[in-house]
Nucleic acid binder design. Structure first.
Length: 336
DNA sequence: ATGCATGAGTA
DNA sequence: ACTCATGCATA
């Protein structure tokens, strides 16, 4: 999903590219193949989300999302603000970790790469973090695992029904009736009853209604956050796909990639032709010459240097594959 | 399959 | 700063 800043690679029309002896040993090839056949354990959206959070600066988020999320965000914040008020008497602010970063946006799974950096969400997200009155969202781990995977809709539906049942009972229902049992209490909602039964608990003897209320509260907070998160990620995804569509992205548009973290430069076709022309004349240019070429083609000096290195490597392979008898190997130079 | 990047070893 | 072997992302 990485967007190339440049046009599609102009592949050189070299002959017999697969015939270079020694490029890939059989074991190398098979291990590469095996590695590449491994299924990616993370969902695409999670990756996208992670990338988003790693890459977008606060300013860029502000630019892009201005007017998009304000409605939902402020609504979510207002909702949460109401809910949070009764908790603030019990919870000190300093005890609030930014838990959402771990719960919602991290890769939890054993990816081969390094651990993800902490998120750099824009201010609205920080505010969302601060909305967590309990500081602990881990109770809802299954939800946190994939808030935006294709199952999101399903989950969202569940949230909806849960929220519906939670928000339509009287605010004091749970805490105000710990002794008695009323038919409309959320404690006796069929879903909760079933869940409690499924967990092997007896609803009335094993479950402290106050714990249940706390759970419901956390559930609600969680849901609010996810609702707020969705449009943010959606907007980012749209931008990312737009950039992927136009190979050369709009220079004014915020990059989806982290600043200074472009993994790989792609040399556009015209520049590549120039480099090849230089290479034909002088395959081993001096440092100064490389700098001049880099300047002329608007490429980094190191990129040009590496290109020449790789080009020489490539040419060697080609030469050795064309004249196998000169290499000392008896084989005909076919890479099998 | 290919191209760009990187790291070890070398002169 | 080079070569060589390899890593790694992409077409």
């Amino acid at each position: 999903m990485t967007m190339s800043m440049y046009s599609t690679t102009d592949k050189m029309k070299m002959s017999a590219p697969s015939c270079f002896p020694g490029r890939y040993s059989p074991s190398y090839r098979s291990s590469e193949q095996m590695r590449r056949c491994m299924p990616n354990p993370s969902s695409r959206l999670l990756e996208d989300a992670s990338l988003l959070c790693n890459s977008w600066s606060a300013r860029q988020n502000g630019d892009i999302f201005a007017g998009i999320n304000d409605g939902i965000l402020s609504r979510a914040e207002a909702l949460a603000a109401v809910d949070i008020q009764k908790h603030q008497a019990q919870h000190v602010h300093s005890q609030m970790p930014s838990q959402i970063k771990h719960d919602v946006m991290y890769h939890h799974h054993s990816m081969s790469g390094p651990p993800q950096r902490p998120l750099q969400m824009h201010h609205s997200m920080d505010q969302l973090d601060m909305l967590d009155p309990t500081g602990s969202m881990t109770t809802l781990a299954p939800i946190s695992e994939s808030p935006l995977t294709p199952t999101h809709q399903h989950l969202h539906g569940s949230y909806h029904s849960m929220n519906h049942m939670m928000s339509h009972h009287h605010p004091g229902t749970l805490s105000g009736h710990t002794g008695g049992h009323h038919g409309h209490s959320a404690v006796h909602h069929p879903v909760i009853t079933a869940a409690v039964a499924a967990a092997g608990l007896h609803p009335d003897t094993d479950t402290d209604p106050r714990e249940l209320e706390a759970f419901a509260e956390r559930f609600k907070q969680r849901r609010i956050k996810l609702v707020a998160l969705k449009p943010i990620l959606q907007a980012w995804l749209e931008e990312a796909e737009a950039q992927a569509k136009n190979k050369r992205r709009d220079p004014d548009a915020p990059s989806v990639l982290p600043a200074g973290e472009k993994k790989r430069t792609s040399i556009a076709a015209p520049e590549k032709r120039s480099l090849e022309a230089y290479f034909a004349v002088q395959p081993r240019p001096s440092g100064e010459k490389i700098a001049a070429i880099a300047e002329k083609l608007d490429l980094k000096k190191n990129v040009v240097r590496v290109w020449f290195c790789n080009q020489r490597q490539k040419q060697k392979r080609i030469v050795s594959s064309v004249t196998p008898s000169m290499t000392g190997h008896g084989s005909a130079g076919f890479g099998y």
